[in-house]
Design a protein around this nucleic acid. Structure first.
Lengths: 135, 135
DNA sequence: CTGGATGCAAACGCTTTGCAAATAG
DNA sequence: CTATTTGCAAAGCGTTTGCATCCAG
């Protein structure tokens, strides 16, 4: 029995473990695939259902690619990205530019802050070059 | 051939105008609906196609709701949000907490920065209350 | 025995793409 | 006349939901 969690879902532990092992972010589909076959395999729906719960517990954060795909990562992984609006490639930043940054106090009174996403968008070198040379 | 803009699409002006008039962000679907019937009506595909180009020109930015829906706004509208990971409600922040913040120089060398998104996620009062009272 | 969690597959909704017609230059 | 852009409708895709089943307590 777990002492802390209302519903000590083993699935959630598995998902979190997978994310931590990976060391990077993964999509729902990737998580599903990565767990498939193993001891903690679970249906795709279950993956998503539990990812949502992990988010609500503030243990997992997620961001969306321009494609609409959602990527998940452990919250302790405070990583942000540069994303090319053309080819969609994303590249991690070395440091979180707003580490420790806070939201105005008054907004937090009735809002329990769990995590944030900060993403930068622009054009990567390759796509910029490609635009200049239409032919 | 034009040397400034490959295709000075009137559609793009219309989209930008609609976004500015609205004063808030709109989804592709909303834009499509809002223009429908009017003089600058256009197909849904065209809306998306031009929104993408506006993004690549750095005139429009977009963020994704937890639902995966994309919301667009003029870049000059430097607005950020609190989003509830439970009910999905989003509330705008009064000020941009990172106004004027910059990405490390060396990352920008080969990346043309166009816009950023900064979103905070958590639980709104209502959903927090609801979680505490399981029954 | 009862409520919640799961799997599967169907359903969803937003976005993209194929292709032929319309338009610009 | 050639290169683009557009519309429409079909396809794509990740995600969510319905429902019967399974499991924990």
């Amino acid at each position: 029995m777990t002492d802390t969690l209302p519903a000590p879902s083993t699935r959630q532990r598995a998902l979190l473990a997978a994310l931590r092992d990976c060391g990077d972010e993964m999509s729902g589909q990737q998580l599903h695939r990565s767990l498939a076959g193993g001891a903690s395999a679970m249906g795709l729906a279950t993956v998503y259902r539990n990812l949502r719960q992990l988010q609500q517990k503030g243990m997992v954060r997620c961001r969306h690619l321009p494609t609409g795909e959602a990527l998940y990562a452990p919250v302790e992984q405070d990583r942000h990205h540069l994303t090319c609006v053309d080819c969609g490639e994303t590249r991690p930043l070395d440091h979180c530019p707003i580490h420790g940054l806070s939201v105005p106090q008054d907004t937090q009174k009735d809002f329990e802050l769990l995590f944030h996403t900060l993403e930068f968008f622009g054009l990567c070198q390759r796509c910029r070059d490609r635009q200049q040379l239409p032919s």
